[in-house]
Nucleic acid binder design. Structure first.
Lengths: 106, 106
DNA sequence: CTAACGTACAACCAAATGGTTGTACGACTC
DNA sequence: GAGTCGTACAACCATTTGGTTGTACGTTAG
């Protein structure tokens, strides 16, 4: 489970991959369509897509000789939920500090 | 700016670092206090803290011979805002699809 | 049928990552 | 003042990452 979270954040830690994610969230695209957008080899883009797919942030569906890539909002939600937890932890710390202040007031 | 985002997500892509973040969001801690919690060398923990600090997810404040580490909720918000953008992109795609359906209905 | 297209995958390479040990040095303690 | 504590940092190592080129193979077009 930790590995899954690792993969999600790791996949997001690269400009090209974030851009691929943006594109495929806006609308589906084939790997070669994606590759045309970047100044690197087809194989490099292919690898980036594989990293995103491995993190579940993107799905790959065969269609003839093409592979259609689509962004997966579900995984974005998962990442959001994880970040929410840290915020919550922080807020609960504040609550505890407030409690201490309340005790002082008694 | 892309580099900053890279650093944020990269810092989050490691279990130990996420745990340090959790701990320091819940309450401040010195580096050696943190190091005591993990089965690795002091220097390794020190490096993890440096990565978190480099991403702005954590602050380091000198206090005598200790360095006090605190989680920084502001950066968590930044990461959340980034993820929100992807969701928004996805929703606007749906809106566009809906528009097409509306055109069909005319 | 042949040629071109889209993809997969292996092999290779430089740089970054995550860990280690060792050394140094200021800050407290006694 | 001497020793211990907390930290910094360099050097080193194995593995992973992000890129490359080359080869192979199914799919579509002419």
């Amino acid at each position: 489970m930790d590995d899954e979270v690792d993969r999600i954040f790791r996949a997001l830690a690269d400009v090209t991959r974030r851009d691929i994610l943006r594109r495929t969230m806006a609308g589906e695209a084939s790997v070669s369509q994606l590759a045309a957008a970047y100044d690197m080899s087809f194989a490099a883009v292919q690898k980036h897509v594989a990293v995103l797919e491995g993190a579940g942030l993107v799905t790959k569906q065969p269609n003839g000789r093409e592979r259609i890539i689509r962004g997966n909002p579900e995984m974005i939600h998962k990442a959001q939920a994880l970040l929410d937890r840290y915020e919550e932890i922080w807020r609960s710390r504040i609550d505890r500090l407030d409690s201490l202040l309340d005790e002082d007031r008694d």
